[in-house]
């Protein structure tokens, strides 16, 4: 099971890394890079939504901040793209902190509204601060330096960053912090009982999501090569959210597949591009109604159906001696 998973991961990575050599055209490369950029944001957002259960629909605001930060620093202040990329990540996490501090104390629905308001405010500021952001006309965005200036090179850069970010979020998700976040999501009372600092956990994960959104924003701006306030419409924030819901809560691979499918969908059904929003809606409806756990849990569900493990009850039979031995050995405190 473990080995086969590793084989799949290595295989997919190899396929993606060699894409510049087998892709049919530049557009496919562009699309793959776009999926990667979206995923960098969603990987962080997934810890917020899928793990800690905080329903942020306003991460497009953090994406915009990263993107404008990158465009302004590289264009106006002529920073190198690498410094600007790092600064965008820092700016994203700072804004995540400032947004999270007041809003993460709000109960679910109100928190979602606060993130929505944040996204709207960012759009308004980008329109109003014309000197800095170019207002409604927007800003051109410089690219990266060689060898990352070609479509193939940029694709490689996005892939490297995406793998790194995925690895960071996987480390959070698979160890104790992941359990703590799920406790925050499913039972705050339980989280408290075992000592999880609920607010701090929510805030830390939100700051991390700000970092990934900021980095994604910088790469997104560079990929688009020109940004305007219209690039960061509210629907994009909703799109990120939907990718996670369709992918399933509490998994990483699910939202990853969700991101890839939903980003590529309008292209796959190219003749029906006008209908892409309709397809989002249809897919969302189908998933919510048919597999509410999300496609990330589908393998689990199918396996459970095919091989219903016997849930034969057994008599709970404590082993007092073993328990006593275990209790005498203090855990590391």
């Amino acid at each position: 099971m473990r080995a086969s998973r590793a084989v799949v991961v290595v295989g997919v990575l190899l396929a993606l890394a060699t894409m510049p050599w087998w892709a049919r055209d530049q557009y496919q490369l562009h699309l793959a890079a776009l999926i990667g950029v979206y995923w960098i944001l969603i990987a962080g957002l997934n810890l917020v939504v899928g793990y800690s259960g905080q329903l942020s629909i306003g991460h497009v605001g953090l994406l915009a901040i990263g993107a404008y930060g990158f465009a302004i620093l590289t264009g106006r202040y002529e920073w190198g793209p690498w410094w600007a990329l790092a600064a965008s990540g820092g700016l994203g996490s700072l804004c995540g902190l400032l947004l999270g501090l007041p809003s993460l104390r709000l109960p679910g629905f109100y928190f979602a509204m606060a993130t929505l308001a944040f996204a709207l405010i960012v759009t308004e500021i980008s329109l109003a601060q014309g000197d800095l952001t170019g207002g409604g006309t927007g800003l051109p965005v410089p690219g990266f330096t060689a060898p990352f200036d070609s479509p193939g090179g940029f694709h490689a850069l996005v892939l490297i960053v995406a793998v790194l970010i995925t690895w960071l979020t996987w480390n959070v998700a698979r160890f104790m912090w992941g359990r703590a976040l799920i406790a925050v999501r499913d039972s705050v009372v339980t989280a408290q009982a075992v000592g999880v600092p609920v607010f701090r956990a929510k805030l830390l994960v939100f700051v991390l999501s700000g970092l990934t959104a900021g980095v994604a924003g910088a790469l997104f701006a560079s990929l688009q090569s020109y940004i305007t306030p219209d690039t960061f419409v509210f629907e994009l924030g909703l799109f990120f959210f939907v990718c996670i819901i369709i992918g399933g809560r509490g998994t990483i691979v699910g939202p990853l597949i969700g991101t890839a499918v939903l980003t590529a969908l309008p292209e796959i059904v190219a003749p029906l591009a006008r209908w892409s929003t309709f397809f989002y809606g249809l897919l969302l409806l189908a998933v919510v109604l048919l597999v509410p756990e999300g496609i990330g849990h589908m393998v689990e569900i199918v396996r459970a159906r095919l091989r219903p493990r016997s849930l034969a009850s057994f008599a709970v039979a404590p082993d007092a001696e073993r328990l006593a031995r275990c209790l005498r050995s203090e855990p590391r405190r």
Partner: peptide, 15 residues
């Protein structure tokens, strides 16, 4: 999860 008080890894440290 009950072992949380014994955990020493910080959030970003774990990452």
């Amino acid at each position: 999860l009950g072992g949380w008080p014994a955990v020493r890894s910080s959030f970003f440290g774990t990452a």
